[in-house]
Design a protein around this nucleic acid. Structure first.
Ligand code: NAD
Ligand code: NAD
Lengths: 219, 219
DNA sequence: CGGATTTTGTTCTCCCGTTCACAAACTCCT
DNA sequence: AGGAGTTTGTGAACGGGAGAACAAAATCCG
């Protein structure tokens, strides 16, 4: 079900291009997945396609948006207005996808009171009030790693039940709370790992050309 | 093998705490995984543990770092110095993990020439020269989605063989080139999906308390 | 020195996601 | 209207990862 957002984006792209109807094959290409997988995924939501024709792009987009819950908009709190937190707070693409920055929190007096995209940074102590006031259920953690756990604890304590964590730390939460992690270093390290294998393959089999090496290395 | 970086971070944390030896159970808790899985993963690298004792933290950390390829440092190019690109360029945690920002590229004359963390932004046309000069094999894409594909093409054309893509677009590359995607919107949408299910479960079974709901909803 | 204890490395089983393949359903053209 | 062509929805086979469980190996302790 983690692929639904990808399909949603592919559908939006097709709508922008003026496409009214698309086959599972078309969608699969646009979303970068196998067409059988895509059909099976969509069949979970119900029979929204027409055999011999394909899917009504607009209609399917709405159905997926509804399934994900994007017919409402989700207020989000961001904790930690450093480099990354500011970039997120300024990010326009946020609102166009059903999310709204409803609260910004920090503990640094230099950050508190500043304004990003029309929202003023407040002290973390005001978290519970803001969560209540704006009915926030999603929190984003962009603090340094060492304080991520305690910030997560306060988010949970204030009633937040979903957390997106950018800090390089494993955070644990009570059951019933979802955590997702975005970790730049890990992504880069995975790339570095493959890079190293590529160069090693080249060293071990200098006769092989790049295409063959690619096949050896492919996951 | 995508878990090796997580183990690496857990080990680094333990070293900072002065721990010299850790069992697979300790490591599993620190990394947030199952201990059997962790042991199986580590056994791939070789037998670096001692039965009845556990793993030498320092030694294991080095072995994993070597496996990933972090004994060398990896020069990285960042394309698109907007909100996000600037945050990445300023990010200190970059260098401490074996990566180095070697080149910054943009096409906006207002950005070109500016300095982030000691590196000057250059025009995208200079990409190939910079890749050659600094022996860059990893590129980071932080441009708007619509130009992500053409930027990726230029990266590949310049000799980059690994791409980390932050733009909300599916990019396709020749075989032999690795692409990883970091997509904020998708992460938030997955959280929203689970949020919606939580609130629906509450509406359908108003008698259930939050803990029971949590079990129903858990993946 | 030998048994009790701890913990690794590995085997085995199970389960879930992926993919193939095909019948059913729909359109289009003659 | 009917056959040819397309495309969905899904049953079935496949593959691989995850976890339980256990034997082997090392330490500890009397
Ligand atoms: N900047 C990046 O590009 C980048 C990339 C990947 C990961 N990260 C991670 O994201 C996190 C933030 O990175 P950054 O570069 O923005 O760091 P930063 O130091 O610029 O910002 C951290 C912010 O958190 C605030 N903060 C500190 N303790 C807090 C607390 N207890 N409660 C609330 N706020 C608190 C600080 O005042 C500061 O404003 C770090 O964990 C970093 O490792 C950053
Ligand atoms: N800012 C965020 O927090 C955030 C979060 C998630 C995803 N993203 C995605 O990351 C990307 C960048 O976001 P942003 O907020 O930094 O956008 P931005 O508009 O601030 O920055 C985009 C930068 O890319 C440059 N650019 C445009 N076309 C280019 C080209 N052909 N070659 C090189 N550079 C080019 C622009 O000059 C600009 O500096 C977007 O795709 C966005 O959707 C951003």
């Amino acid at each position: 079900m983690a692929r639904l957002p990808v399909y949603l984006r592919a559908l939006t792209l097709l709508i922008e291009r003026g496409v009214a109807t698309a086959s599972s094959e078309d969608l699969a290409v646009a979303a970068g997945v196998n067409s059988a997988k895509l059909r099976k995924d969509l069949s979970y939501l119900g029979s929204y396609g027409t055999r011999g024709v394909g899917y009504d792009v607009e209609y399917l987009r709405y159905q997926i948006a509804r399934e994900i819950g994007l017919t409402q908009d989700w207020p989000v709190a961001i904790v930690g207005l450093g480099n990354l937190g500011q970039a997120l707070a300024n990010y326009a693409g946020f609102g166009t996808r059903g999310f709204r920055v409803a609260a910004l929190l920090d503990v640094d007096p230099d950050r508190i009171g500043r304004d990003f995209g029309g929202v003023v940074v407040r002290h973390l102590d005001e978290l519970a009030d803001l969560v209540d006031e704006h009915d926030i259920s999603i929190g984003v953690v962009t603090t340094p790693g060492p304080v991520a756990q305690q910030v997560a604890d306060r988010l949970v304590g204030s009633g937040v039940t979903s957390i997106l964590n950018f800090a390089p730390a494993v955070i644990t939460v009570p059951s019933g709370v979802d955590v997702r992690k975005v970790d730049l270093s890990i992504e880069l390290q995975i790339l570095a790992y493959h890079e190293q294998r590529k160069s090693m393959a080249g060293a071990l089999h200098p006769g092989l050309d790049i295409d063959v090496v690619a096949q050896v290395v492919a996951p």
